[in-house]
Design a protein around this nucleic acid. Structure first.
Lengths: 144, 144
DNA sequence: GTTAATTCTACAAAATTAGTAGACTTTAAC
DNA sequence: GTTAAAGTCTACTAATTTTGTAGAATTAAC
């Protein structure tokens, strides 16, 4: 299961993607509309800014806005930032690889196979799912 | 990422699958060979027994043994028992469904799609991965 | 220079995960 | 029937992670 932090990040980013290139948005706005504790959201947005997904403008009339184009921000990227590895086992992770403590011999471990495939499929689906697609999908669903 | 508890369960079950129909195995044996704290393992095995995957024999010469056939125990079943839902969001879970707090309207939520597909793919792969297959795979890899 | 916003550091509370202690029960061997 | 070796069960405790907060510092607009 994704953490609240990660879900908050996704919702905040979708909100900002809906307002792409319309100037900075107050943290307060995002927090209220998405029901996210403001102080917690601050920390999340800061992290997203530090990884160049968002930019911010300080002072009066300031706020956060999407820096990357919505087509270029995928769910994989967000989840990796907020949660770390995509894979279910450290020993099959691409970006966060670590040997399994429990495994005595990785070469003859019969468990890793299945989890490698799960990781590949998850990556395939989540990397194809961008903020732009999510916004588009919401607009389609909203019309009905 | 899977919890240690879940990884321990998988390793213990694979160990027991390798010894299927060879009588009860001591907790101690499993704990030592798989590097699992004995007391923690006790709790895990008990849970697996309560869900009819294992049986146990008490008293001298007792221990745990696989009750279900290794072909009938899949990784999905183990993970669901130890971790709960397979899906990354509660609102797309099959067995552990809950509405998302963050979502205001599930019908127009553009995020769920991708996570539904991830869930389906994960289920497909993990339900096809049984203890029997894992043991077979380990024996193949061991030969080389 | 006042006000409204983000930034940053440090902390605190809550929840979950991991692990332990120890008494109790059951069973088999002698 | 006594004893020893095993699982069973309840109740903790410790460690870690997640979630959330407080408050001062900084910045920019007016």
């Amino acid at each position: 299961m994704l953490s609240k932090k990660c879900k908050y990040a996704i919702h905040a980013l979708v909100y900002l993607a809906e307002r792409y290139q319309q100037g900075p948005v107050h943290i307060q706005d995002i927090a209220e509309s998405q029901h996210i504790p403001k102080k917690f959201l601050e920390a999340i947005l800061l992290e997203l800014k530090n990884s160049k997904i968002l930019h911010s403008k300080k002072g009066k009339g300031g706020g956060y806005y999407l820096y990357k184009s919505p087509e270029d921000v995928s769910l994989v990227e967000i989840i990796r930032l907020m949660e770390g590895a995509i894979s279910l086992l450290p020993c099959v992770s691409i970006n966060y690889y670590e040997p399994c403590e429990e495994c005595r011999d990785e070469k003859t471990c019969g468990i890793r196979d299945a989890f490698s495939i799960v990781r590949d499929e998850t990556l395939r689906v989540l990397s194809g799912s961008t903020l732009a697609q999510i916004v588009k999908r919401e607009r389609e669903l909203g019309k009905k």
